[in-house]
Design a protein around this nucleic acid. Sequence first.
DNA 1: TTAGATATTGAGCAATCGTTCAAGAATACG
DNA 2: CGTATTCTTGAACGATTGCTCAATATCTAA
Lengths: 192, 192
Amino acid sequence: MPPKPAYDRDSLIDRARDLFWSKGWSGTSMKDLERALNLRPGSFYAAFGSKARLYALALDRYAAEGAEALDTLERSRGPLDALKAHLLSFAAPGAGAARGCFLVRSVSELEGADSPLGAQAGTLLDAAEARFAALFERAQQAGQVAPQHDPKRLAQRYQAQLTGLRAATHRAHVDVRALAQDFATDLDRLAP
Amino acid sequence: MPPKPAYDRDSLIDRARDLFWSKGWSGTSMKDLERALNLRPGSFYAAFGSKARLYALALDRYAAEGAEALDTLERSRGPLDALKAHLLSFAAPGAGAARGCFLVRSVSELEGADSPLGAQAGTLLDAAEARFAALFERAQQAGQVAPQHDPKRLAQRYQAQLTGLRAATHRAHVDVRALAQDFATDLDRLAP
DNA sequence: TTAGATATTGAGCAATCGTTCAAGAATACG
DNA sequence: CGTATTCTTGAACGATTGCTCAATATCTAA
């Protein structure tokens, strides 16, 4: 009876994430979305309900992918090297477009407007920080980090450095590799 | 012959800077500005030409005030302590509203749209970084920083940490004081 | 006091915003 | 083939966007 949708919902969310990520919430118009997703308004609203709902999906996907990447890194290299590799990955030569963290951008744009989206981005950032803290804690238990350090504090510091590093990718003349290296050696200094 | 404007142009720019700073470029509507500045459209456009021109003035003022604050700090404390105090000032108890750097926010919002405003914010950020580098260099000449360090690299690192620190002020549960202390001790480690 | 110049006002412009919805196209089952 | 069900289309809505401009108010200099 029913025809199936002509689009792949998942890849639509991916494309929307990229668009929102690079143009921001209010910088992305419905016309932009319709063009990028090749969807006429009716289909768009049937599929996603509203611009805000799609943005929420994009935030969730972004955070989930980040968490998954970090998990993979930990499995192959252990907790401390995972954090280091994560840091360096944003300075890798082929590291894609220059853009900061989507969550940070969302918080900074939407926080004041007490939009639910700003709160959601904040929550996801908190979750990321908790993940960092857990990694630091496991590194500590494995003897890679001296016991006098507080994992939560290390996580906040790591997150701040990561944020600054990723913001720096916007600016042409900054040597992001050197920057990432500096922060990576900070991690080495945590050894007992 | 002419009546003088009923407003104080300088304080209007101040108020506009605050508004743009907290709501962003596209988050701030002309209606918002008219209300905050108590200006009807005609007066607004007579005074500033356009929303974009006022934003440019706000960016310039913001950067100038930052530079001046740093200069003052250097005169009273010398180069390295000025950098340290600057860092800590954003974590001070009465440090005002929670918001990141206006220039960073502007770059991140406007860079993709190749708006002249994004480029302007980028240039001002470069200037700030150059100022940091000059301070590190003078600290080096004064023997406060070991000679093997590259002032420019130190400046980029400092700027990234400052950016991350200020972004963290958006998020409630982060201990910004501890964060600033961590970055301040990084500066202490530069001693010869 | 009056003439000249400038400031202020506010209605309203064209364009765009996010969104709705009735009509038509497309598909799978009987 | 026919019918039921869903998807797609695109015109159009009211609200808001940044901005213009003729009319009016206000002040200064002569």
